[in-house]
Design a binder for these strands. Structure first.
Length: 592
RNA sequence: GCCCACGUAGCUCAGUGGUAGAGCACUUCUUUGGUAAAGAAGAGGUCAUGGGUCCGAUUCCCAUCGUGGGCUCCA
């Protein structure tokens, strides 16, 4: 998996400890800690690992750091680098180690030592007057850490636990040479240009309004067009694959979620109860209970299974304000959702079909860079997960078998399951390198039991079906945000909000331009005419910046011959052709 | 939600303790020009909102709202 794949760069996400870059970054974090300690002698040190692109160190400090502090710290670091202090490793018995850090008034280090397993070697690294608890390895001296720049300060919880002390984390960027550090910032600038929030504004795809609320995006006509095209595509694919599409309301009584378990395990992600007369309602955070009601509306024979109920379903989740981001993390989202009700014997085959549907959809969408994650439960976390030990193992093993059968590479992620069952998550990285779950397939033995779902088996007895929850192209919000970045706004013709724009050369060609547009619209294409009294050069520039796939320049020559002069986005003039030929060309392109 | 930063015209951004500027976009006029931006004029801002300090605040302070980067969480 790479971060800046679209820009032609490859960066390691996991560095080898023996790696020189790992050592440089690790040593740099020690240099940072030394510098901070010199400027703030009362600083308490937490941890400071190397990461992609650089390093960080967490500190507990008496006051908030300012950007000016960062400059001072960086200056101090450069002095330490100049001094070229050798790093010396030493080992101490546990008691000595504990006393040592305790005397230095470093409570976080004491906690770290106390948590080290029995028998573990406890090592320290010393440079000049600074010594830090550390496993290593490091470069030989502080002069050998390469080129770096302190990047930013951020809050971070001690041990990643939001209930514990919040620390100040200083991030640094580090590469062997200054040129590579500069290149990092250039990549960041480039990535920003294809950030879906930037392009969403520039291309008029979506907006937010402060008086509507954060995390509640509005789809503008062009963005709505992309969404509609996707929705039609996936709906047709599902109808062809034996799914039945339904519509269900976004509200429900809390009772529904008390039965499902959302009330107990998912409530902090739900908007609070609204009360009217003597009744209570909540906005749904998921659609499964609604679809379950539809399944339960009829009696089912094993002959009917699997029943596949699908919906482009809007759901509402209360995400913490700081978690919201553009279109990729929102509070109102429309999920390409479906629930498959099947017999235990059918589960594996159904999951395979879903995986294949995901693969087909990704091929169509041009998504090639993704990985499979098997998201498992954490038996210790009873707050997050329903407690049904046998069912978890059964479902998790079924998913492992599917991976084995399909020979798909995957990795396991404990603690990432849904509260009711394990998931196959399909992970993508956005343009800034942030990993996101997009498609997901979940096996669920829990909800059928909670809602006492049944079917009549071949034996005439009542049996309980298994549920598969799945989102193939994810939420419209997240998928579109991803596609904007994947294509840098230059969508393939079938997805482009405007597929062609007709550019009359002078005002007297506007009528002919409208005729051409009408012909294309009659064939079902999305076409606009730029009838401004401007030069073609300017109209071409405008169309290019809106990333419209085809520009059709029309003047006297074209009008006389019934032609259009075709220009393809990002290319030069492709020459004139009869309008009918162009229609055939664009038809061929969108038919794939 | 927490930590830090930011919020100036429709957009991108300058700027200042003495009530504001550029480019693009917009409107009008001239131009009718064959593939990435013709010329001129004009209009457009309670400097996010609400308090406070000050003779005077867009500028300094506080709060609120929003945005961005982290943390936590997640489709």
């Amino acid at each position: 998996m790479t971060i800046f794949r679209w820009l032609g760069y490859t960066l390691p996400t996991t560095m080898d400890k023996a790696d020189q870059l790992y050592k440089m970054r690790h040593t740099a974090s020690h240099v940072l800690a030394q510098a901070v300690l010199e400027l703030f002698p009362e600083a308490k040190l937490a941890i400071g690992p190397p990461i992609d692109d650089g390093f960080y160190y967490d500190f507990d400090l008496p006051r908030s750091l300012t950007p000016e502090d960062l400059e001072q710290i960086e200056k101090r670091m450069r002095r330490i680098v100049k001094e070229d202090l050798p790093l010396v490793r030493s080992e101490k018995p546990r008691d000595d180690a504990r006393t040592f850090v305790d005397e230095k008034a470093q409570p976080y280090k004491v906690e770290l030592i106390d948590d080290l397993p029995e028998g573990e070697t406890i090592s320290f690294y010393t440079q000049g007057s600074f010594t830090d608890l550390c496993r290593g390895p490091h470069v030989e001296s502080t002069g050998k850490i390469g080129a770096f720049k302190l990047d930013k300060v951020a809050g971070a919880y001690w041990r990643g636990d939001e209930k514990r002390q919040q620390l100040q984390r200083i991030y640094g960027i580090l590469y062997p040479t200054q040129g590579e550090v500069d290149a990092y910032y250039e990549r960041l600038e480039e990535a920003k240009k294809r950030d879906h929030r930037v392009l969403g504004k520039q291309l008029g795809l979506f907006m937010n309004s402060p008086i509507i609320g954060p995390g509640l995006p509005l789809w503008l006509p062009k963005g709505a067009t992309i969404r509609r095209v996707l929705e039609r595509y996936i709906t047709d694919l599902e109808l062809d694959s034996g799914y039945q599409h339904v519509y269900t309301p976004v509200l429900a009584k809390p009772e529904l979620y008390k039965i499902s378990g959302h009330w107990e395990h998912y409530r902090e992600s739900m908007f609070p109860v609204m009360q009217i007369d003597s009744e209570e309602f909540v906005l749904r955070p998921m659609n499964c209970p609604h679809h379950i009601q539809i399944y339960a509306n009829d009696q089912h024979s094993y002959r009917d299974l699997p029943v596949r109920i699908a919906e482009l379903a809007t759901q509402y989740r209360y995400e913490k304000s700081g978690e919201l981001s553009g279109l990729s993390r929102v509070r109102a989202m429309c999920l390409n959702d479906a629930h498959i009700f099947c017999t235990p014997e059918q589960v594996k085959a159904e999951i395979k079909k879903v995986v294949e549907m995901v693969q087909a959809a990704y091929r169509k969408l041009g998504i090639t860079d993704y990985s499979y994650r098997l998201s498992l439960h954490d038996a210790k976390n009873t707050e997050k997960y329903v407690s049904k030990p046998g069912l978890w193992e059964r479902a998790e093993n079924q998913l492992r078998e599917v991976f084995a059968d399909l020979e798909l590479p995957y990795y396991e992620a404990p603690g990432e399951a849904a509260f009711y069952g394990p998931k196959i998550d399909i992970q993508l990285r956005n343009v800034l390198g942030k990993e996101e779950t997009v498609s997901t397939i979940q096996v669920d033995w829990h909800l059928p039991e909670q809602f006492k779902l049944e079917y009549i088996g071949e034996d005439g007895q009542v049996h309980q079906p298994v549920m598969i929850h799945r989102g193939v192209i994810s939420t419209m919000e997240r998928m579109v945000s991803y596609l904007i970045e994947l294509y840098a706004g230059a969508f393939p013709v079938w997805l482009a909000p405007v597929q062609a724009i007709v550019l009359p050369i002078t005002d007297r060609h506007t009528d002919y331009a409208n005729t051409v547009a009408t012909q294309l619209k009659a064939e079902g294409f999305r076409v606009e005419v730029d009838s401004a009294s401007e030069r073609v050069g300017k109209k071409v520039a405008a169309a290019e910046s809106m990333k419209i796939p085809y520009m059709l320049v029309v003047g006297d020559r074209d009008a006389a011959a019934g032609n259009v002069s075709v220009r393809r986005r990002g290319q030069q003039d492709l020459g004139a052709m009869p309008t009918g030929d162009f229609i055939q060309l664009i038809k061929n392109e969108t038919a794939q």
